[in-house]
């Protein structure tokens, strides 16, 4: 139509631009796993690992430092329980193994299933927090009216940077009964 000399074919530019649009759309979705991986490596979002760590037998306890670990708890939206730590905070040395109990009370007359999700702030600390045992590793069946005491055993990696003197470990306890079904709750946990 135009009498000008096109410098390149219109359709080849359009194809490239449309391809870029598709790539950027896919990139948006690719950011989801990339972000997850990135957070895992850097502790960016304060998630802790959901598999048990094994404490190294000849780990050195660093008695020169005392770290304050605070515990925060929250119930997920609409979750019918009372959920709290036995102590609000503890002071510990890096390399020392500690156990803290969390208490959850199912206030309904039904069997429910709970799942706790941990988060650490500042996020960097999550890289040095190693749990050898945690109720958050598994779904927690809660029989009607049951009060459960759930232990969490952990230590801090002696490599913990000096800049971290205090951090918060928080748990949100979600009600996941609707997703998994309450059939999972069989015998009471005391057995």
């Amino acid at each position: 139509m135009s009498k000008q000399q096109p410098k390149a074919d219109n359709s080849s530019i359009i194809t490239k631009l449309l391809a870029s649009v598709v790539i950027m759309f896919a990139f948006g979705f690719a950011l989801v796993p990339l972000y997850e991986k990135f957070c895992e490596m850097t502790g960016f979002n304060g998630r802790t690992s959901n598999t048990a760590a094994t404490a190294d037998g000849n780990m050195q306890v660093d008695e020169s430092r005392i770290i304050t670990v605070e515990f925060a708890t929250r119930t997920g939206r609409g979750a019918p329980w009372e959920f709290k730590p036995e102590v609000r905070s503890i002071r510990m040395h890096p390399g020392e193994i500690k156990v803290v109990n969390f208490i959850v009370e199912n206030r309904t007359g039904q069997n429910r299933v709970a799942q706790a999700l941990p988060s650490v702030s500042p996020g960097e600390a999550s890289l040095y927090l190693n749990k050898t045992e945690c109720f958050c590793f598994e779904q927690q069946p809660l029989a009607a009216g049951e009060t459960a005491i759930m232990p969490m055993q952990f230590y801090l990696d002696p490599d913990l940077p000096d800049s971290i003197r205090r951090f918060t470990l928080s748990y949100v306890m979600y009600d996941i009964t609707d997703q998994v079904g309450s059939g999972a709750v069989t015998a009471s946990r005391s057995e």
């Binding site: 410098k7 390149a8 530019i13 359009i14």
Partner: peptide, 17 residues
Amino acid sequence: IMGAINVIVTIMNMRAP
């Protein structure tokens, strides 16, 4: 996006000599 494609193609291909 359509507007942007149009602008790019126009600028790349339609400039006067």
